[in-house]
Nucleic acid binder design. Structure first.
Length: 256
DNA sequence: ATGTCCTCTACGAGAGGA
């Protein structure tokens, strides 16, 4: 089964691109981030017409996550993360699809740093780690898929220098991501491409796509049972070069 | 530092976020 994470940067603007992707790739599961749409305006009819069931956690203007499944309705397990009652950002949605637990994650960007947005990012990572530990204890196949807004290693970016001051690459961001993975998760893309040099995001600005000036921030973390079933992982890069593309490319894992 | 894009408000262009 092919499981995809895709930050669409606005579901309304990206709907033609998404429907095209579903038709062409026929993925089994798709985790979406940055819907930038309220629950009421999520285009569920178009997605169902494409043959997919969906659960979603929307928010007007910002954030918003969803889980789509081909030919079946994902069963929602949890929306949002515990630990901060006043947090109203729609950034976490967990569902079950055919016995596999799937989480769609939109980790805070954290820029500018230092500052309150960066502090929020680090707290959010801690809250995610707490949830991830609970999921590991369930001993079921789990895929934590999403836009983590963390560049894990120096070889995950076209330029360490250009990103040096960015929240995505700060030691604290990396340490949080590393300690999450160290719980026992497998970073699927990294496992398949241990030398790095794989990008999932290219900025709209400064001709980043044309220069291949990207970095890897969309990740799929596999629980041990899911990791045993890993066949391959990759990036459907050409969708980044199409008309009205998102700044992220769909990033996927294939499990037996 | 930023050459772009998306959304909202509210009808025209600027703010805010990434």
């Amino acid at each position: 089964m092919k499981i995809v994470t895709y930050n669409v940067n606005g579901i309304k603007a990206r709907l033609p691109r998404l429907l095209e992707y579903l038709a062409e790739q026929q993925p089994d599961v798709v985790c979406l981030q940055e819907l930038k749409a309220s629950d009421e305006t999520f285009p569920v009819k178009d997605i169902e017409a494409a043959g997919y069931g969906a659960v979603w956690h929307g928010q007007k203007s910002w954030n918003g996550v969803a889980v789509l499944a081909k030919g079946t309705a994902p069963v929602e397990r949890q929306r949002g993360l515990a630990g901060e009652v006043e947090d109203e950002h729609s950034r976490y949605l967990e569902a079950e699809v055919g016995g596999t637990v799937i989480a769609s994650i939109y980790l805070p960007n954290g820029n500018p740093q230092p500052g309150p947005k960066f502090d929020y990012k680090l707290r959010w990572i801690d809250r995610l780690r707490a949830r991830a530990l609970d999921l590991l204890a369930e001993e079921v196949p789990v895929v934590l898929a999403g836009d983590y807004n963390v560049i894990p290693n120096d070889d995950d970016t076209y330029s360490v220098r250009a990103m040096q001051e960015d929240a995505l690459m700060q030691p604290e961001s990396r340490a949080g991501f590393r300690s999450l993975v160290a719980q026992g998760w497998t970073d699927a893309l990294r496992t398949r491409n241990p030398k790095g040099g794989i990008w999932t995001f290219w900025d709209y600005q400064a001709g980043a796509w044309q220069r291949d000036a990207g970095f890897r921030i969309d990740h799929l973390l596999l629980s041990p049972i899911a990791a045993d079933r890993l066949v391959d992982a990759g990036v459907d890069k050409d969708y980044r070069g199409r008309e009205k593309a998102s700044d992220h490319a769909p990033t996927w894992v294939r499990l037996r």
